[in-house]
Design a protein around this nucleic acid. Structure first.
Length: 851
RNA sequence: GCCCGGAUGGCGGAAUUGGUAUACGCGCACGACUUAAAAUCGUGUCUCGUAAGGGAUGUGGGUUCGACUCCCACUCCGGGCACCA
């Protein structure tokens, strides 16, 4: 590549090129291929299921092998966790850093439909491409444990877990309105609908009533919420999950209905304002309306209103803004607190799925209730006085007091703060027998049916006599039939329904005629437990052996890595995208807890630690996408600059947790750095190794120890950018001082570099005469005593302004330093004729004089 | 609307968590090498000023000997949730 002229940089006093073998130029293509082959041949990244070493399980989200191949954004997480994994190996851990493919799902199926190539073949081709790409980057995956969710040997166990859920009543069928994407022709989970549109294709979703398989994740809502306290997740991840689960404490209040021998129950978190309740509003799709419509005096009007509401999609409903509509039912509920008659309305701002599907309107203290009351000309009663002291009737929305204040017009609650009042009235209502404290969650049960081909068949059959019958475990897996046509249907039925040969089967129970379930699982199914399979990927008897699960999830860790708090084990470190926080991350916690309850996994949480990476954007800060033509393919970068450069650049670009824009100019920085590392190593090797060391060598002993500390600590904090910058600083210093580096310290430097740029580090390591892989060497330790500078530059401030800098000895006493400073020429000039009021001394930092 | 982030040179970003703002990298300028270019190496690179010195971390206030960092009020950008009773 390049020939270096180092006449200028080599110190004239040193003997150069002593005839030892000359190092070739830095040829990334040759080196990277060479070491990837050697590593693979020697299996040095294989994890051992029976090791005396402490275990370390590091995990990335397994990729979806799309047809487009990977782009540079996909490997940010892989690189980060590869660095962590490599460091752990060098620290003496038995590391499991696995990889696999999450390959069921729509993109593959759609591509297959478009091209006529079978999804099995598409998946095979795509995984081959991805595997090649990943291997070219030198990740230290244990490839012997590679898994694929579309492999029948794998999805056998996905189906098996489903059967356990079914057995425990957590999988059930329900007829319900689902989000139907008319373009993908598939039902969507709530989590897959974004702004009323399909997350994948952007088409506005429709409501369709359909019988669906559901998973009762809400049964675990409380634990999924509470156990977040015990895990070491990034705070923003915990917050997002908590918001999604949406726990709220409130009370169900039951009101009698006037003239009817019936009651209506309302959920409210604000019973404190109940003296100000003036109406009730019912959700058009709520249970109350469904069950009691025939009793409504204004049945006709209500029916007309519901019909009109149903015509609109969610998008239209929200686009019309906050203008509230509704219709009076003709019924009145009676407020037991004050015997007030509250008219009951049907209104579409009330959601059937929230609380009981009925809300009690307190227009004085809730903005939506206020808007509705204004539209319907309903009474508004003030029961709270806010900090502004306003006690006048509420007629403007600015007066609506929601979050703070003191009660008035509320009988025994008068004068009490609203929060206190909430507690008090809850107890009162429970005592009187018409209130019951409850906790509700925003989280809904998980819609688990998909009407498509390329997914795990749901392993049940429908028998006319026996009903839904699970496929016996011994008959698993229920394999997807090989067919030519898997076009989705408009009817909302799975394409599997057309394959009569497959559908028609015998009931395992009565041996009579039966039909297979034709819905398949969503592609979140396979990823909800995949990490467990890694510990025992070839097991045909169980999804993973107890022994391996226990070793990889719960075997004791050395003190330095064990966590405080209630955590009892799990995967040590899991990094992934924020976009999975309320999907995969939540689903997999749910499945894991379920398996824990069956005593099939040894920990109640799957992941001890979860971090997240920022996206890599295209040049100019826009999203990388095929349509914009700004996708950077890692293959091109690897070819031109090398895998080491790409890895280094991705980690150097900016803070790991923030999004950064790709820059094809900036990548030269890391490339040049590696070339300088190469040259530094060559120069050090060229020099006579027995040459006597000067003062400079002590300086570099200190430097290397500072670098060990910085790199070690920064990797743990995922501050890869500053770790790399400290490596660069080290090389700069060595160059500037004409390479006064011993091979011993050079080797230490290469060890620090190796997690980031494993190939070049390994090559130089071997050139320096090491026989064993640098990856199996011991991570260097720093000595605090060697880090300390003997001389320190401190700042001198006068009235907060920097006026001078002085050098002091590390052990100089404060009094001596002060004395020197106060006699400093510059300082004297600035304090002349003034009285010194105060002197502040910050050790090793500065001295601040106030005059 | 609510909840999280974020704003620092021409650009990506750093700052020991209250202690010398702009590390490291990119880019740019000049110089060396070269017939020349590229590459490489060296020097410089926030800003006003000849200098002494002054001003700069989105805006405006505050606390402090000292603020990118803490507090109050705002602006803009990114992400999440959203008629959740």
């Amino acid at each position: 590549m390049k020939e270096y002229d180092h006449k200028k940089i080599d110190p004239p006093t040193l003997k150069l090129r002593t005839g030892k073998k000359k190092m070739a130029e830095y040829n990334h293509l040759r080196i990277e291929k060479k070491w990837q082959n050697i590593w693979e041949k020697n299996g040095i990244y294989h994890a051992n299921n029976n090791s005396k070493k402490p275990r370390y399980f590091s995990l990335i989200e397994f990729p979806y092998p799309s047809g487009a191949g990977m782009h540079v954004g996909h490997i940010r997480s892989n690189t980060a966790m590869d660095i962590i994994s490599r460091k752990r190996r060098m620290e003496g851990y038995n590391v499991l850093y696995p990889i696999g493919w999450d390959a069921f799902g729509l993109p593959t199926e759609n591509y297959a439909i478009k091209t006529g190539i079978h999804p099995i073949k598409v998946t095979k081709d795509n995984t081959d491409t991805f595997r090649k790409q990943l291997k070219a980057l030198g990740f230290s995956f244990d490839w012997s444990r590679e898994i694929n969710t579309t492999d029948p040997k794998y999805y056998k166990w996905t189906q098996w877990i489903f059967l356990q859920l079914l057995k425990k009543g957590l999988a059930y069928k329900a007829k319900m309105f689902i989000n139907w994407c008319p373009s993908c022709k598939i039902g969507l989970a709530n989590e897959e609908v974004v702004d009323g549109a399909c997350e994948r294709c952007g088409t506005v979703v429709e409501k369709r009533e359909k019988e669906q398989w559901m998973l009762a994740i809400t049964k675990y809502a409380d634990r999924l919420y509470k156990d977040l306290d015990d895990v070491d997740y990034l705070e923003k991840i915990k917050i997002q999950q908590r918001n999604w689960i949406g726990k709220s404490l409130g009370i169900n209040v039951t009101y009698p209905i006037e003239g009817l021998n019936k009651t209506v129950t309302v959920f409210t978190t604000r019973p404190d304002t109940n003296f100000g309740a003036t109406f009730l509003a019912l959700a058009p799709d709520g249970i109350f309306v469904k069950e009691n419509l025939s009793f409504f005096p204004n049945k006709k009007g209500v029916l007309a209103y519901i019909k009109q509401v149903n015509k609109r999609t969610d998008i239209e409903r929200l686009a019309e803004g906050k203008k509230k509509t509704g219709v009076f039912t003709g019924l009145y509920a009676v407020n037991s607190l004050n015997n007030k008659k509250m008219p009951m309305y049907v209104a579409d701002f009330v959601l059937g799925g929230v609380g009981t599907g009925v809300l009690v309107g307190v227009p004085g203290h809730d903005m939506r209730d206020f808007e509705f009351a204004q539209e319907m000309k309903l009474e508004i009663v003030r029961v709270v006085v806010g900090p502004d002291g306003d006690t006048s009737p509420i007629t403007r929305k600015e007066q609506v007091q929601e979050d703070t204040g003191t009660m008035i017009n509320s009988g025994f609650l008068n004068g009490i703060d609203i929060h206190e009042a909430t507690k008090k009235i809850m107890e009162y209502m429970e005592e009187k027998g018409y209130g019951k404290k409850v906790t509700t969650y925003k989280l809904r049960d998980w819609v688990f049916s998909r009407q498509r081909y390329w997914g795990e068949p749901i392993p049940v059959v429908h028998c006319e006599k026996c009903g839904v019958v699970p496929v016996p475990e011994k008959d698993l897996p229920v394999k997807l039939p090989m067919v030519k046509n898997y076009q989705p249907t408009d009817s909302g039925e799975s394409p599997l329904a057309n394959i009569s040969k497959w559908v028609n089967t015998k009931c395992p129970n009565c041996k009579g005629e039966a039909k297979r379930e034709t819905d398949t699982m969503p592609n979140w199914a396979g990823s909800s437990w995949y990490f467990l399979r890694y510990v025992d990927p070839k097991n045909n008897k169980e999804f993973a052996s107890k022994k391996n699960l226990e070793y990889w999830l719960t075997s004791p860790q050395p003190l330095s890595l064990s966590r405080r708090g209630g955590n009892t084990g799990g995967i040590d470190w899991y990094n992934g995208g924020m976009e999975h926080t309320t999907l995969h991350l939540l689903y997999s916690r749910f499945w894991h807890k379920f398996l824990y309850d069956l005593k099939l996994v040894p920990t109640s949480e799957p992941y001890m630690k979860r971090t997240s990476h920022g996206m890599i954007l295209g040049e100019g800060g826009v999203k990388m996408s095929k349509s914009l033509g700004n996708v950077i393919n890692p293959d091109d970068i690897v070819k031109t600059y090398g895998a080491d450069t790409l890895r280094l650049y991705e980690m150097f670009m900016g803070p790991f947790d923030q999004s950064v824009a790709w820059s094809s100019d900036s990548i030269m920085g890391p490339r040049r750095f590696l070339e300088r590392v190469w040259r530094m190593s060559r120069t050090v090797l060229d020099m006579d190794s027995k040459m006597s060391r000067t003062v400079l060598d002590i300086k570099f002993e200190m430097r290397i120890h500072q670098t060990i500390k910085k790199v070690s600590e920064d990797i743990e904090a995922m501050k890869f950018n500053t770790a790399i910058s400290s490596l660069m600083i080290f090389v700069n210093e060595v160059e500037k001082n004409n390479f006064p580096l011993s091979t011993f310290h050079l080797k230490t430097f290469l060890q620090l570099l190796s997690p980031f740029a494993p190939h070049i580090a390994e090559e130089l390591w071997s050139i320096l005469g090491e026989k064993k892989s640098i990856n199996l060497s011991t991570w260097p330790k720093w000595d605090e005593n060697l880090i300390k500078n003997e001389e320190i530059k401190i700042a001198v401030q006068i009235n907060g302004k920097l006026r001078a800098e002085i050098m002091i000895g590390a052990d100089d006493k404060e009094a001596d330093v002060q004395h020197r400073v106060l006699n400093n020429e510059v300082v004297l000039k600035h304090i002349a004729g003034k009285e010194i009021k105060k002197v502040i001394y910050v050790k090793d930092r500065l001295i601040s004089i106030v005059v």
